[in-house]
Design a protein around this nucleic acid. Structure first.
Ligand SMILES: [Zn+2]
Ligand SMILES: [Zn+2]
Ligand SMILES: [Zn+2]
Ligand SMILES: [Zn+2]
Lengths: 134, 134
DNA sequence: ATAGACCCTGTAGTCACTAGAGGGTCAACA
DNA sequence: TGTTGACCCTCTAGTGACTACAGGGTCTAT
């Protein structure tokens, strides 16, 4: 029921420092304190932290997390707004994947030129020198 | 032949500040100076900068760039070493792509749950609250 | 009494830039 | 001649999302 920061970290799979960091920047509400000034957490904190971590796992920025938390907290949101936010982020992820695939192809091509020999002439390096930009 | 920082930036597609930054951290050798203290660049600087930018476009870190520049400069490298560096980076890129595709699938699933209605009940948010981690 | 596992605050470091303050230099134009 | 504007300079601080100390306090067990 009540747990200290180390146990909360263990149960949510994130570092103690990260929890304190989230409190400092305001995405987690301040924890209650024991008489020795140790933080104590309840189940609602644990749920909220898990929620934050799941959003972070999906690549949402802390700003986006804050936005969604505000929407939920105030109950002043619509499914359409949430969907728009999700779709926008999904588009960003897809763009990043496309970028990385272009990089992957270029790199694959470059590495493929290497003979792997123990000599100081490397066609990958030469190709890099002559490659056009962008 | 001789060009100032603004023109070098224009020709290489990078910002003036970035060039000064590269000089400060030592990936670009210090430029010569005019009597008014303005930096002057020659063709070898331009080639080196283009080379750096191409590596950065491929996602190599500045540390990796430094390593490769050192190898080339000293001529004390083998094709096999270069290939290993390239392959390692390619593997990292592929891992990142795989991560992002998992994220893409999860997000696609979540966004697909939304009805897009103007009401404050959203199955994406609910699913997020119940999702397992990792 | 002392070791070890916790906890606290506060600051600084990471990466690769980017932005800004506060100034100097130079050519052209009125 | 004065002034506008495009350049250039240095130095510092900010970005995101943590992470790593430094330098302490607290609590339990041996
Ligand atoms: Zn996003
Ligand atoms: Zn090679
Ligand atoms: Zn790499
Ligand atoms: Zn919805």
């Amino acid at each position: 029921m009540k747990l200290r920061i180390g146990r909360l970290a263990g149960e949510t799979g994130c570092h103690v420092e990260t929890i304190r960091f989230y409190e400092r920047i305001g995405v987690l509400p301040p924890a209650a304190r024991e008489s020795n000034n140790y933080r104590v957490y309840s189940d609602s904190h644990r749920r909220r932290l898990l929620y934050i971590r799941r959003m972070r796992d999906l690549g949402f920025s802390l700003d986006e997390v804050r936005t969604l938390l505000r929407m939920i907290g105030g109950d002043a949101y619509t499914c359409a707004e949430v969907q728009a936010l999700g779709q926008e982020h999904l588009d960003a992820v897809r763009n990043k994947i496309a970028d990385l695939r272009r990089v992957e192809n270029a790199l694959d091509d470059l590495v493929g030129r290497c003979t792997g020999a123990d000599t100081p002439d490397c066609s990958m390096l030469e190709a890099l020198f002559e490659m056009p930009r962008e």
